[in-house]
């Protein structure tokens, strides 16, 4: 455990001396902030227009219209593009600068190396999500967002991001080229994403059978996300993300280990 923390701490210190981490953080907050502002303004307008009408008033709901869409719409796609930039350097950089020769000849296991790196990336994503809580803070000043919905929303985004990071780390183990690691990760995530489309396609449903397409769609990373935004924490969805994470980290560990014994 100590070694995992040592590796994670070193990763974190590297992130936060490089401009990349700040850039990622800034872009993330900008985009989420934009999404928040637009929703908030739209909501405020609707309140102004319909607020006096008792019938419509019931339909006006800050959770529905501001909290839920915070990570809705295009934001998950945006995370898909942003998160691989966090993981792309994790393993390739070690090989490129020759430090792999240091860590692989140290008395630590490949599992500890992979978990340490993953933990480092995870903390970066937590900092990002933590930063975005400021928007909820602002909202809480002017309204009463439902904290249960907020909690489940953030659990969902956290799990989604954590899966992206695990997949990114896993693919970064295969190469010593950062750009390649990034492109492979985004590509893989996009494929996993668009699996959600197969069950909606009639021709595919016919040729493969609904069972098969349903199964494929179930593998999609985004298919399991929306329920979280509704304030529903379904263990099936949690289990899905956890298994993606465990599987990716397992593969990453195998690949790192095979480098040692090639």
């Amino acid at each position: 455990m100590r070694s995992i923390l040592t590796i994670a701490r070193r990763e974190l210190s590297t992130y936060f001396v490089s401009p990349l981490a700040y850039l990622i953080l800034a872009v993330f907050l900008l985009v989420v902030g934009l999404s928040f502002c637009l929703n908030l303004i739209a909501f405020a307008n609707e309140c102004l227009i319909y607020g006096s009408n008792p019938y419509f008033q019931q339909q006006l709901n800050v959770n529905e219209q501001v909290v839920r869409p915070l990570f809705g719409g295009f934001v998950p796609v945006f995370l898909l593009i942003l998160f691989p930039a966090i993981t792309m350097r994790l393993l390739p950089e070690e090989k490129r600068q020759g430090t792999a020769e240091l860590i692989l000849t140290s008395p630590i296991s490949s599992t500890q190396i992979v978990l340490g790196k993953y933990l480092g990336a995870l903390v970066v994503s937590l900092v990002m999500l933590g930063g975005s809580l400021a928007f909820i803070g602002v909202l809480a000043k002017v309204s009463q967002p439902d904290l249960r919905t907020v909690a489940s929303l953030y659990l969902g985004v956290f799990l989604l991001g954590a899966s992206f990071l695990a997949i990114g780390l896993c693919l970064s183990a295969f190469t010593d080229n950062q750009v390649l690691a990034y492109v492979m990760s985004v590509g893989t995530l996009l494929v996993l994403w668009f699996l959600s489309g197969v069950s909606k396609s009639n021709s595919l449903n016919q040729s493969l059978g609904e069972k098969a397409t349903g199964f494929l769609a179930n593998l999609s990373v985004i298919e399991h996300f929306p329920d979280f935004t509704k304030g529903v924490v379904d263990t099936q969805h949690v289990a899905y993300y956890l298994s993606i994470i465990v599987f990716s980290l397992f593969v990453a560990q195998r690949v790192v280990d095979s480098h040692r014994w090639r």
């Binding site: 070193r10 590297t14 001396v17 600068q97 020759g98 430090t99 020769e101 240091l102």
Partner: peptide, 10 residues
């Protein structure tokens, strides 16, 4: 090692 394994940013 032949090439010193350094984390240059530290």
């Amino acid at each position: 090692p032949e090439h010193p394994p350094l984390y240059k940013e530290m």
